[in-house]
Design a binder for these strands. Structure first.
Lengths: 212, 212, 212, 212
DNA sequence: CATGAATGAGGATTCATTCAT
DNA sequence: AATGAATGAATCCTCATTCAT
């Protein structure tokens, strides 16, 4: 763990309180998902490196070794988590687009869905973030692939905007993505501005600048 | 400068021949800066957690323990590095603004200076990255303070734009920052689009949407 | 048989259709032997310590826990495996001696049978290997007992040679054993020299030196 | 650790007794050699896999992590140990041959030196042993190379014997090696037969069989 | 200024084993 | 006869850090 983000040493007192010792064959059938959820929360909060398997296992009430029954490695756990997140985000965005035809409206709604997903599930913040994993090996590729697939949705939407000459759709799309993905860095859930208002403002800027 | 430990940056000329052993044959006059530079490069590439003091010391040809002569801790090293980076960026942006009065031109040039600094010194990428503010400790606060100071320049520039009703300068500024800071995530130095072109496009969008 | 758990080796024909579920589609009738075989191969290749119950269970298509239905512990599994191996070797050597009377010919044939068994069943290599007797526990004793029983055959054969004064039968027997057991260390199944040729050479040396 | 060779749980009572806590900068300058010696003893007794870095560090009065200051990995430690052992053995054998010209006498003396080295330094037993390391990767190759170099001495000696037709020097050499290397498996330091007597007997057999 | 040697805590991972189902 | 899920202890190793020299 990084000393930059220390962790309370013995938080054993704040256990789920359901049962003092969960015995062998716990009720909930899918501990896998518990683990994924816990890992998501922790990694979003502290980063991949700063989140230890100990942390994850403790969060889900297991011993560290037990996590390895479900996932062969921390990396594999992360990859699956990342995949899940992208899956969820994809579904969310596609749902928002359902039945909407106007190109600029489609952009507005997808940006909104993206940002709301980012803010609500704090899972997602770090996930979509770059150079995320220390070892820049195969995992980085997998993660990049996941992201690319997701971004295809936005590529298509930008395509349909029929932007005027001089407006590079790729740069504008990546610029919008940057704006949105950066929001969690400064956003404070104080309610002054909702994610929806924020993303609407970003898209409004684009529309105001480039709509026919 | 660093709140933890002031550093004699320019006045090394005062006592050039005092040290009987001229250090391990390294050209650079003081190792402190070597360490900072190495730490910057490594942390930018791999992140704070994934960069060990061993890595840093090895990169500068020292033993791990020796780094502690120069910096009391990894944390302090990082804080000073971050401060340096912000200092450098500030100087770069202010230099670019010198003698320029037109508000939109000022925005264009400062955005350009920011992005070019980001891309050139790979130092800077990770520093400004969200992952570094996850924690809730003093360091996080210091880092946030550094950034806030730097961003004040941009706050002022946006103020001067006199944006129309309905255009929230804060959101637009943070949106631009997001766009710019996200560039290193996808930018590949393949020369197809220069950082300058990219930042110009972002600013052009804002201008096109909101300029009087 | 194993002192820990008797095993119905040959009488499996008695109740061929009792089990309603014919096991996971495997051909071999009982999984116990599959496990033993797999354990033998793996332990021969990697050693006792380096062979995990996971390895063994995977090799036979089971989950690790399932092995414990058949064997109470890794130790017990090994003891039984070792016993089996010695049993097999004993049978092989005795078969080779059948009907042979000449003492030197008996030595030649038994050495040949021993080495061929060693080379063919790679099972056997590691089993007879010194590394396995390092420990000071009961298992080590059991294993040593197994081996001693087997070696009795050779003790008898050497006795019958009526070696001349000055030729210590014990040392010569152990020397021959060493020569033979060491062969797997350097033998490469390239066919240049067959195990039979090798063992014949060893025995020929003894005969040439000590035969009346 | 293998359950075959369990280890007393808390033998902290049997510390060297020199000083209750060795403080920071211990007196003896080369802890490296201490580590190598300890590792040698332990690995010879229990095998590579069964000897943990904990064991080694405890034997030399260090914390496990401290060993890594001296050796980058368990494997590297083993490789160096193995190299040292071969070096020592080589020196021992060459010293024994000094000034001796008669070919059979050279064989007798080198075999004696080999076996005495094997028995005295219990280090050496396991080292010269085969399939020693679990992971049969590069290390296995290095170890094999070490051994091959050492065995060249014996190859030369056998060459000089001018064995008659039909006596394969390679097989005989490997047979002798097997006989000698197997001795530690059965030898008990009860003094009935000295290593020298044993090795002399092995060589005498060869000479009796093949000397002109 | 720096090294050499260590510490102590924690990192990911693997192990033999258990047991309810 | 075997699975699925977990345990607890041990594995190798890395980390930031210390300090006598």
């Amino acid at each position: 763990m990084s000393p930059l983000r220390p962790r309370p040493k013995q938080e054993t007192t704040e256990k789920p309180a359901t049962s003092p010792r969960p015995a062998r064959g716990k009720g909930g059938k899918n501990r896998r998902e518990d683990i994924l959820r816990a890992a998501g929360t922790l990694m979003a909060a502290k980063g991949y490196d700063a989140t230890s398997m100990r942390d994850i296992s403790a969060a889900v009430g297991m011993l560290p070794g037990s996590v390895y029954y479900h996932f062969p490695s921390k990396e594999a756990l992360f990859v699956e988590l990342h995949n899940d997140v992208v899956q969820t985000m994809t579904a969310r965005v596609l749902a928002a687009l359902e039945g909407v035809d106007d190109p600029w409206e489609r952009l507005r709604l997808s940006a909104r869905a993206h940002l709301e997903g980012l803010i609500q599930n704090d899972n997602l913040v770090a996930i979509v973030s770059p150079q995320f994993i220390g070892g820049e090996k195969e995992v980085a590729q997998v993660v990049t692939d996941h992201r690319r697939t997701y971004e295809q949705i936005f590529r298509d939407i930008f395509e349909a905007l029929n932007l005027p000459e001089g407006a590079d759709p790729t740069i504008l799309r990546l610029g919008l993505f940057g704006s949105l993905n950066w929001v969690p860095v400064w956003y404070e859930g104080d309610g002054r501005r909702s994610p929806a208002e924020i993303s609407d403002q970003f898209v409004a800027t684009l529309k105001s600048a480039y709509a026919a």
